[in-house]
């Protein structure tokens, strides 16, 4: 069937795998953005910088302390998440009563500061991070590098675990309820300000985890999250921020569409997501999984 496009199968599957990997990052990042927005009413522009911080933390842990990838997978999100907690306590907390735009501007400013500092210290060319799993599998129609397969699986597991945590646990019920009516949830005896801080820390930790996973695939560089966060904004507009599963599906789906475009018409591959966004705005302005409020 694909012969009509005269595309060799290995190339197609290779690009689809790349798309899936990008999609995994879109899903993890848009998930965090959506959860943070639900609780804090802030679009966290710093998300891209925090993704970069995750990768950097892993790289610094490896080069300075010889801490291996697998430990960084836990340590780096923890460190960056704690940094997020600090940002929430010191800055974000004081502007919740203002228009959403101020949170956007504040976190934009923060991302300039963070990315600028890293660029100033380490330059903008990237540093390589050795792949923790060597080798791969010959699937017959394509070669699957083992680490890339692991990234897709790991991201899927993390996304589903997040979904489970929010939709099926007691803490998740607090979170959903506090998103709707924080005052009442607090009047039931739940420390909502702490819940908000925790949410931000978790969302940021998720971004950092995506960064650690990305480190062996991409170069670790100060600006690795700059363009990514802009694409993720489009993903969030397309999916709508109302549904956790919606964010996951949209993220992976758009990654695949991007990969497919790379095969069919390469020049459009980095704009196709924005085209999808334009179409969604025309057809269903609230987003595929969004509710109109």
């Amino acid at each position: 069937m694909l012969d009509i496009f005269s595309i060799p199968l290995p190339a197609l599957f290779g690009q689809l795998l790349l798309g899936l990997i990008n999609g995994a990052f879109y899903a993890m990042l848009s998930l965090g953005l959506a959860v943070i927005f639900g609780m804090l009413n802030v679009i966290n522009f710093t998300h891209g910088a925090q993704y970069m911080l995750g990768a950097f933390a892993a790289w610094l842990l490896l080069t300075n302390l010889s801490i291996p990838f697998w430990a960084s997978l836990v340590l780096a999100p923890l460190i960056v998440g704690l940094f997020g907690v600090l940002i929430e306590r010191l800055l974000l907390k004081r502007i919740y009563h203002l228009d959403h735009l101020y949170g956007f501007l504040l976190t934009f400013g923060l991302s300039l500061v963070i990315e600028g500092l890293f660029q100033w210290k380490w330059g903008s060319s990237g540093a390589p991070y050795p792949s923790p799993i060597a080798g791969g599998y010959n699937l017959g129609f394509m070669f699957l590098p083992a680490y890339r397969g692991f990234v897709v699986l790991a991201a899927l597991v993390v996304c589903l675990a997040t979904w489970y945590g929010i939709e099926r646990t007691r803490l998740g019920a607090y979170l959903r309820a506090a998103t709707e009516n924080p005052t009442l949830v607090q009047a039931f005896g739940i420390n909502v300000p702490r819940l908000i801080t925790l949410t931000y820390g978790l969302g940021v930790g998720l971004a950092a985890l995506a960064g650690v996973l990305a480190a062996p695939i991409q170069q670790v560089s100060a600006l690795m999250g700059t363009n990514l966060v802009l694409v993720v904004f489009a993903v969030v507009v397309i999916g709508g921020m109302g549904s956790i599963m919606g964010s996951i599906v949209t993220g992976f789906g758009l990654g695949l569409i991007e990969g497919f475009t790379k095969v069919v018409y390469p020049p459009a591959s980095n704009t196709v997501i924005f085209v999808v966004m334009a179409i969604v705005l025309l057809v269903k302005p609230a987003g595929l999984f969004g509710q109109t409020k």
Partner: peptide, 19 residues
């Protein structure tokens, strides 16, 4: 009444922690 729409009946019922 403050019933949460993103929670089902049982989740609503179980929401307030025991004090």
């Amino acid at each position: 009444r403050g019933i949460f729409s993103s929670l089902n009946v049982e989740e609503n019922l179980m929401l307030p922690p025991a004090v």
